[in-house]
Amino acid sequence: MEAAGPDVIIANATGCLEVFTTRFPRSSWQVPWIHSLFENPASVASGIEVALKALGREDEAKVIAQAGDGGTADIGMGAFSGMLERGHNILYVCYDNEAYSNTGFQRSGLTPKDALTTTSPAGPTSWGNLTRKKDLPAIVAAHGAAYIATSSVGYPVDITRKVKKALTFTGPKYLQIHCPCVPGWGIESAISVRMARYAINSGLYPIFEMEYGKITKVRKIKKEDLVGVEEYLKPQKRFAHLYKYPGGEEHIKAIQAAADANIEKYGLLAE
């Protein structure tokens, strides 16, 4: 918000962000802000953008849509795809905490493999979420978005920089921000930011920027910051079953391999 400045109009999805900040009759928002439904901030933002154009007010404000991972990758996917395809001048921000957290941490399309959620519980016959995380930035890239970036609450300065940069592009922009959910991930609130950093510094959550379909920048992991995935997995209750049931070590190995593959693919390691 600080990065975008006061001349914005925000379309928000249903979620913790809306519930916590706008309980009637109060509001935390000092910029024009609208919440309609869970699955339509992309379409509402589209309506705002075309209305500004139609009224000759397009210089008045930048339009930002905000939603969670479920609202973006699952239930709002059609609306989101439509917004991208139509080429609206909108920055879409997805807060990715890897589950439907507002309703009590159920599985979403962005829940990583082997993570336990309330609808993908782990037990002797299940390793939690059985499917891999949907590669949303790649899907957005396939729409021909002007600017795509991933970021994390682990590095707020990175978010600020990317919001500022995104807003210099005309057309649809996408920013996916990795955000730990304290109760959902089963961690102490104090270590939430550290966990977000481990996700990056293990290679599990690559931080990069794409302009017109090409990766232009990645956040390098400094040698001294590099951690194994276990540093990230172990403190989280959503991965506790990997340490409880026999065969868990194979799954941890596979997760490590996925992290290593990311490091290789995006060239994440600093020289």
């Binding site: 809306e18 519930v19 000092q30 910029v31 802000w33 609208i34 919440h35």
Partner: peptide, 8 residues
């Protein structure tokens, strides 16, 4: 600026 669509 106003807030629209708040929770009640």
């Amino acid at each position: 600026p106003i807030t629209l669509g708040s929770m009640a």
